[in-house]
Design a protein around this nucleic acid. Structure first.
Length: 570
RNA sequence: CGGGGUGUGGCGCAGCCUGGUAGCGCGCUUGCUUUGGGAGCAAGAUGUCGCGUGUUCAAAUCACGCCACCCCGACCA
């Protein structure tokens, strides 16, 4: 491709709307333009990247035995009513009516359509297993789209769905997809991690997420460096701490005027956070639920939502309700003498002795509190906190570390959730109708592009992994318009590289060298060859990799083979 | 959806408080010079000042309403 005939529209200045690196760089490098909130046009440069990601995904899915197809973007509402997701999905599902007042949706995912198809087409066990996938535009009417492509409303997803006669075969395909996703993200050139995950609204049993590791990621991932344990912090188990020590102190009430937070309390009493507990109050199914956590720990909403006594979605109790139940306001609550509330104590708080908590009297706290002696109400001990770095790994093989990640893939064992809801059955060998065992597997293709940039950029711009760069190589002639010699050599080198199957961009624009260099760096082309009068006089071209960047001269006759070697090495 | 903020040329912004000729930088066009890291000089073009209503002799500026976008929160395969 010749740059003069392509579309490069880079900006020096950063658009005010963009906060995160990938969003800023995708706008500046002219990969995308915003059309509406969370809706973007993919310009030619961005589109090339998108297509490269899609191609790798497609090749590996095909290799894994899945079959590509295409389902409609616009789907009838009645199908969604049949699965129950018409109501369950909420306002993220964009609904509208056609001219006949029939309900339709813009699909956020396609379980309904594929299950409907399986019901009518996969009638015999002889057709199983089957795995269909598509690469397609999705729409989710996010309440707050942000971070550019990372959380848009319209995006491209690879979604695949598998159908099996029994659970063992579903598990086989699930493992197959785990391996396939690992190959895909490896081929994309990304640093990533597969982690155990919560199944969320999609439902089902087993689930893994694939996260691109980046400090700006929205998700926290806990992993154990000494083993292969890795889980989303939403899910990662906080194992019980060491046995509770013997309590020695008597209980004392101390005045703590004005103390509202654990930080205030620790400052006033000169205490470490881990000698205190905090009490959060939520609405429960029958009574209020008081969650008691160690002062330095954070409540985990996913775990808490699964408590039997809690009302979902989680709602914090109002100050009036709290005052009625505890006799004190926020900031002075505690488990001692809390009547008419359900007490749920985190394992780590339960393991404390001689701790400090609110006295259920405004401006008063207790010190030297011990569970058995001071708390008469029945308590439920549960894991309701987020793990933190340094916690023991649940597999007992070391301690956890926390990194941040961007979710780019998710695989689920749906089991029979949809097949049962939609009466999708097949006949087994005995002639009995059985619901399909189903799996579903998603990759956020557009998000993967943004995540790649989030993970790979520097002060000059994007540093694309070679497999997904818009071009593998750029040829930058200095004085293309002015020097016949440079122009002839650049054209010849460009032709030779193209003939050798290299995806090359010839930057033949009539710009000063600084502009060309800056653009090629911003766009993130991994390899650069510079031709100049000076270099040609010595019979050489200059090579520089975007990532490491010490330039070196290569004899012009060897430029093609040298570059092929570099590409093969990456 | 709750809270906060911003809408002025393609992009980034000033002007608004204190009403009176719409301005700066980048980009764009033309010419000359320049040519190994986002050039210099000169001459130009580009504005329903988000939309509407009101106040006023006069509104980018004041008031009210609406819309769009961004940020924080809640929410989220």
């Amino acid at each position: 491709m010749r740059a003069s005939r392509f579309f490069i529209a880079t900006h020096k200045e950063v658009p005010a709307e963009a906060e995160v690196a990938s969003h800023r760089l995708m706008l500046r490098a002219s990969l995308i333009r915003r059309l509406a909130a969370g809706i973007y046009t993919w310009l030619p440069l961005g589109h090339r990247v998108l297509r490269k990601v899609e191609t790798i995904v497609r090749e590996e899915m095909d290799r894994a035995g899945a079959i590509e197809m295409a389902m409609p973007v616009v789907q009838p509402g009645e199908l969604w009513q049949a699965s129950g997701r018409w109501h369950a999905y909420g306002p993220e599902l964009l609904r509208f009516k056609d001219r006949h007042e029939r309900e339709f949706v813009l699909q956020p995912t396609s379980e309904e359509v594929i299950t409907e198809l399986a019901r009518s087409e996969l009638k015999s066990y002889r057709r199983l297993p089957a795995h269909f996938y598509q690469l397609q535009t999705k729409f989710r009417d996010e309440r707050r789209p942000r971070f550019g492509i990372l959380r848009g409303r319209e995006f491209v997803m690879k979604d695949g769905y598998s159908f099996h006669a029994d659970y063992a075969d579903l598990q086989r395909e699930y493992d197959n997809m785990h391996a396939t996703y690992t190959r895909i993200f490896t081929r994309l050139g990304l640093r990533f991690r597969a982690v155990a995950a919560d199944t969320g609204a999609i439902g089902g049993t087993g689930s893994h997420e694939f996260h691109v590791l980046a400090d700006s990621g929205e998700d926290a991932i806990a992993f154990c460096p000494g083993s292969d344990y890795a889980a989303n912090v939403e899910l990662a188990e906080a194992v019980a701490a060491a046995q509770r020590p013997e309590g020695k102190e008597p209980r004392r009430k101390v005045a703590t005027p004005g103390v509202k937070t654990i930080a205030d309390l620790c400052k006033l009493l000169q205490l470490p956070f881990e000698k205190t507990v905090k009490t959060l109050v939520y609405e429960g199914k029958d009574s209020l639920v008081a969650l008691v956590l160690r002062g330095d720990h954070e409540m985990n909403e996913t775990k808490t939502s699964k408590l039997a006594a809690i009302a979902t979605p989680l709602r914090q109790a109002s100050e009036e309700a709290v005052r009625r139940a505890f006799g004190a306001g926020f900031g002075s609550l505690g488990p001692v003498g809390a009547a008419d509330v359900k007490l749920v104590v985190d394992r780590s708080a339960d393991a404390l002795a001689d701790f400090v908590c609110g006295a259920n009297e405004d401006g008063q706290h207790f010190t030297g509190v011990n569970w058995a002696r001071d708390v008469s109400a029945p308590v439920e001990v549960a894991d309701i906190r987020n793990v933190v770095a340094g916690d023991p790994s649940p597999d007992g093989k070391g301690t956890l570390e926390i990194v941040r990640g961007i979710e780019v893939g998710h695989i689920f064992q749906l089991r029979t959730k949809y097949s049962e809801a939609m009466a999708a059955t097949f006949l087994n060998e005995a002639g009995d109708a059985r619901p399909f065992e189903m799996g579903c597997y998603g990759i956020g293709v557009t998000r993967a592009v943004a995540a790649a940039i989030e993970q790979n950029h520097d002060e000059r711009g994007i540093v694309f992994p070679a497999p997904i760069a818009p071009f593998e190589v750029c040829v930058v002639p200095i004085g293309y318009a002015k020097s016949d010699k440079v122009r002839a050599s650049a054209d010849a080198l460009y032709d030779a590289l193209a003939a050798a199957g290299v995806d090359v961009l010839l930057d033949d624009r009539e710009e000063r060298p600084g502009v060309l260099f800056a653009d090629m760096d911003l766009i993130g082309i991994p390899h650069r060859l510079v031709l100049s009068e000076r270099g040609l006089a010595a019979g050489s071209v200059e090579y520089k990799a975007r990532r490491d960047g010490t330039p070196r001269d290569v004899p012009i006759g060897h430029a093609v083979s040298f570059l092929k070697e570099r590409l093969a090495a990456a």
